[in-house]
């Protein structure tokens, strides 16, 4: 009478184990959720770079990638939360606009790992990917001053926000470092998000700066930059691109590009997280880690003389060793 219900027969246990393993295997793929800004993955600038980095990780590391593009900012928090609920292994927010959303969701779900580009959040489960844009701007500022024949250079910013002011301040310092007498003309395209996508106004501003005597313009304005490149070609002057390597867009008229390697930062973060080496906190990408750099390729090798290249490398190493202190807009403000 006793022990009618004994331990389960072995085959069943075995079968259970097999089933369990079989069902849980696909879940082993490392899942990354990428939340892009309104600009979307095809903005040829900031969001594109993040998307490229994640795409590279998908190809090389075999992760499972899912990306969404924000329709409006009210939904950002919801998107991060949805990814968190689905137990994605790493959730990446792109752009400072997402800082609030990531901060809130990360505080609620401490077991989830987050990364944010361009936003600084101090939480153990959030990695903030910050870029030392002022360092790179300084280097291209030096190059601009060397390339300028009139001793007058220009800067065109996209949206007037602290981030772009930081570009400007570094650039200004770089130009003056090389040529203390240089004149610098500065314009901002606008104060709304639309400023990132207004090539027509960018072109107008560039033409007016050329009229004022500037002959090299550094443009940090996302998709508006193409307008400046058009003006440069028209007037046979020089421009400096930003974020991605934009030298190819108008070969011969783009002196160089200040690289902000969002793709590298995103890729490295995914790689580290996949290998279980994720750490929270702020990681700064600067000249030292080549997260920030200036672009040199076949499109601009005729524009950058050996002398200029030597000088740029010299400046780079001086910034890395701390011999040159580049003024940082973020620090001067507070």
């Amino acid at each position: 009478m006793k022990n009618k219900i004994g331990p389960l027969p072995r085959p069943i246990i075995f079968l259970n184990t097999v089933l369990l393993v079989a069902f849980s295997l696909p879940a082993f793929a490392f899942k990354v959720g990428l939340v892009l800004d309104k600009g979307g993955k095809d903005d040829k600038s900031f969001n594109s770079a993040a998307y490229q980095g994640a795409l590279k990780a998908q190809k090389e590391l075999g992760i499972e990638l899912k990306y969404v593009e924000a329709t409006d900012n009210n939904l950002l928090e919801n998107m991060h939360r949805s990814f968190a609920k689905k137990d994605f292994d790493l959730i990446i927010g792109v752009g400072f606009a997402q800082a609030d959303a990531v901060k809130k969701v990360a505080a609620q779900d401490l077991s989830e790992k987050f990364a944010i580009v361009d936003g600084e959040i101090n939480a153990p489960n959030v990695k903030s990917l910050m870029f030392e844009e002022h360092e790179g701007s300084f280097v291209v500022g030096v190059l601009a001053a060397m390339a300028s024949k009139t001793g007058s250079v220009g800067f065109i910013g996209g949206m007037d926000i602290p981030l772009i002011r930081r570009f400007e301040m570094g650039y200004r310092a770089g130009v003056l470092h090389q040529n203390p007498k240089a004149k610098i003309v500065t314009n901002y395209i606008g104060i709304t998000g639309e400023a990132w996508n207004n090539p027509a106004k960018a072109k107008e501003l560039a033409l007016s700066q050329f009229n004022q005597g500037a002959d090299v313009i550094f443009v940090a304005a996302g998709a508006s930059g193409s307008g400046v490149f058009d003006a440069t070609e028209e007037k046979k002057k020089l421009a400096i691109g930003v974020d991605s390597n934009q030298n190819w867009m108008k070969p011969g008229f783009i002196l160089t590009s200040m690289l902000k390697r969002v793709d590298v930062a995103v890729y490295d973060t995914i790689k580290a997280a996949k290998e279980g080496k994720f750490t929270g906190g702020v990681e700064r990408f600067g000249l030292k880690s080549t997260g920030i750099d200036y672009a040199l390729d076949e499109h601009n090798q005729k524009l950058i003389t050996p002398e200029m290249k030597k000088r740029a490398e010299e400046i780079k190493s001086q910034i890395i060793t701390g011999k040159i202190k580049v003024p940082d807009f973020y620090k001067t403000k507070k």
């Binding site: 899912k66 969404v68 593009e69 329709t71 919801n78 998107m79 949805s82």
Partner: peptide
């Protein structure tokens, strides 16, 4: 539909936010 736009983007492969 406004909210669903984001969720469609998130939950499906072929449909983007514009479909809403």
């Amino acid at each position: 539909l406004q909210k669903g736009a984001g969720d469609l983007d998130l939950e499906t492969n072929a449909i983007t936010r514009d479909f809403a």
